[in-house]
């Protein structure tokens, strides 16, 4: 588990001429066991990486779908410690792709920043995504992540000035999370018309750091469009909406991710590889 495995994942997707696909799922949603089965299914379906949501009571960058998933997980007793346990179970089940722990800053501070990074490293995560942590305030976590060979993901947004994009690039480890639209997480009908111009601004400054686009991506067509301009596509709310309330969320998640990859078959090469 390391920065190298994130880099290798993007390199492999690039070699295959497609964007790395990174679904998001909230740990503990709809319950602890099911969330583990969903992550295993995502790996089988050919996801390249997974963003593991660490639920928080006040997720201000998230839209209603992920808020609700968080709340259900919290109501069923999810904690940071249990999220770590579930991650260990995911690794024990043979999932080898990079895992990114996505969670807000307050639970991280309550756990202790350095202790938090060490615990996620030990549980098998490759990096942290902290949506309410601007680069200006990220020194403590960045140092702790560096000490454990983990990524601390930096963000850009359509509103970012060139100076802020450069600042994100300078601090970037793993990849850059390019938020596609001004707003919260959530599926949208179409990608923004000016997405290519904005991603172009980021890519022009990103050097070798991969750029993954998230927020509002919900279809195979979106993933394909993102692949034309960026290195990765992140899909969160659309997956939770498609699979969260299904009778068998793991199966529904498997099929949804297959669909995002433009595939219908089961057990393709990549999926087998990610699960070995």
């Amino acid at each position: 588990m390391s920065l190298a495995s994130i880099a290798a994942t993007f390199a492999r997707a690039r070699a295959e001429g497609r964007p790395a696909l990174m679904p998001y799922w909230s740990l503990g949603f709809p319950d602890a066991d099911t969330s583990v089965r969903v992550i295993e299914a995502l790996a089988r379906a050919g996801a390249d990486m997974v963003e593991l949501g660490v639920p928080f009571s006040d997720p201000l960058a998230d839209g209603p779908v992920i808020q609700r998933a968080n709340q259900i997980a919290l109501d069923r007793g999810i904690t940071v410690e249990k999220c770590l346990d579930l991650t260990r179970r995911i690794r024990a089940a043979g999932v080898t792709m990079p895992l990114m722990a996505m969670g807000y800053l307050n639970p991280i501070m309550a756990y202790g920043e350095e202790r938090y990074v060490a615990a996620w490293h030990d549980a098998g995560a490759d990096g942290l995504i902290v949506p309410d942590l601007p680069p200006e305030e990220s020194d403590v976590l960045a140092q702790a992540c560096a000490a454990h060979d983990m990524a601390l993901i930096q963000f850009t947004a359509p509103t970012s000035t060139d100076r802020r994009i450069r600042q994100a690039v300078e601090r970037a480890t793993g990849f850059i999370y390019a938020v596609s639209v001004a707003g919260t997480t959530g599926a949208r009908g179409a990608l923004p018309l000016d997405l290519a111009a904005y991603i172009g601004r980021v890519k022009a400054r990103a050097g070798n750091t991969p750029v993954a686009v998230g927020f509002g991506i919900s279809t195979a067509e979106h993933v394909h469009q993102v692949g034309e301009i960026a290195d990765g596509a992140i899909v969160g709310a659309a997956l939770i909406r498609a699979a969260g309330d299904a009778a068998d969320p793991a199966q529904a998640a498997f099929e949804f991710v297959k669909g995002l990859r433009g595939e219908r078959g089961i057990g393709d090469r990549n999926g087998e590889e990610n699960r070995k």
Partner: peptide, 22 residues
């Protein structure tokens, strides 16, 4: 200048809002 009252205050918001704060 960073909005800090000792260790308190500051600015912890998603990147989308950071330019608006500037």
């Amino acid at each position: 200048l960073h909005g800090k009252f000792g260790q308190y205050g500051g600015r912890y918001v998603p990147e989308t809002l950071m330019p608006a704060f500037e």
